[in-house]
Amino acid sequence: MNTKVWLQAFRLRTLPLALSCIAMGGFLASAAGAFQWNIFLLCVSTTIFLQILSNLANDYGDSIHGADSTDRKGPSRAVQSGAISSAQMRKAVIIFVLLCLASGIALLFVSFGINWNAILFFFGLGILSILAAIAYTVGRKPYGYIGLGDLSVLIFFGLVGVMGSYYLLAKQITWQQILPALSCGLFSIAVLNINNIRDIESDLKAGKFSIPVRIGRERAIVYHWFLLTSGLLSAAVYCVLTFSSPWQFLFLASVPLFIKNGMAVSTRPSHELDPYLKQMALSTLLFVLLFGIGQILGRSF
């Protein structure tokens, strides 16, 4: 087994983005005095397994449907390049489904004990998350090919990721927490949007009708600015509604990074956009760290 090839297929650079929503839930729980390391670390492991599962399934699905071809401007994928066979990738997908289930079930019992109503509800959410990770590009009618990837990212990288992890820690939730959850979801969509803008031509040839394919590059750039602005605005509104200290606005220090990303997407050709996927993901993680630290400091002073 070529470890380097598999690590590339895991797309480890996507993990900071996946962990951002869990970190946001953890910070909100910490600010509420409800943080627990054992539950948080199980949230992290489950999320890592789920993200890698999504990446492997995406590699497999796009190679089968033709979206990963020589026309694609991003880095080559494992199945498309022949570095990993389709059969090997299918086995890897099954392994990570089992890892997700094992970690997720452990998380639920540690968090809830023998509260079967809570366990079954969150187990259902976990199954939906696994199915969403696979069905994005795998199957006869993958939803990523009809432009529903953005909605899925908003739900799972935003609402479920943030509010779900917060509830696992704090056993309660408030409606205001929808706002920081939206911030994480919208910034995650922005990462996907950069990817889809970069791949407009190859996706169109493969019949993958992402949002940028449907609306065109110019409108996709406007959409990108909407995602960035709305994500920051959601965080700001949350801080106004729950205001206790100016420290809560510490996240505004990340604004220049989002402006830099938006300007790059607006001006650079498609083949130069790949580095800005990583830049957007890391900007989102920094935003979450600053937001979370600001919430904790805001409750302390």
Rank of each mutant, 00 (worst) to 15 (best):
A253C: 04
G149V: 03
N195L: 11
I130E: 01
L232H: 14
S234K: 06
Q172T: 12
R198P: 12
F156Y: 07
R140E: 15
I178N: 08
F122C: 10
H224M: 09
P246E: 05
G124H: 08
A220G: 07
L151P: 12
E201C: 11
V213L: 01
Y223W: 14
G158F: 02
P256H: 08
K260G: 09
L131H: 14
V153A: 11
S244F: 13
Y145F: 04
V237Q: 03
I211C: 11
L186H: 07
R219S: 09
F209Q: 15
I178Y: 10
Q176R: 13
G207D: 05
I194M: 07
L204G: 15
L228N: 09
L169R: 06
G149D: 09
N193S: 11
R198N: 12
W225E: 06
D203F: 05
H224C: 02
K208A: 00
G158R: 00
A181F: 04
V153Y: 08
G158D: 02
F157E: 07
R217N: 00
P212H: 02
G149F: 09
Y167A: 01
A190G: 11
R214G: 10
A236N: 15
S234M: 10
L232C: 14
F156W: 02
D199G: 02
S152H: 14
Y167W: 06
K260M: 08
I178A: 10
G164T: 01
D199Y: 04
V255Y: 15
Q177H: 15
S254I: 09
L250F: 02
P180W: 04
L228P: 03
I146W: 12
G126R: 00
M263R: 15
S202I: 01
A220E: 07
I259Q: 13
L232D: 13
Q172L: 10
F122I: 11
S202N: 08
A133T: 11
T174G: 12
R214M: 10
R219N: 10
V240L: 15
K205P: 10
S129L: 06
G126W: 02
H224F: 03
A133P: 01
I173W: 07
L204I: 14
A135S: 15
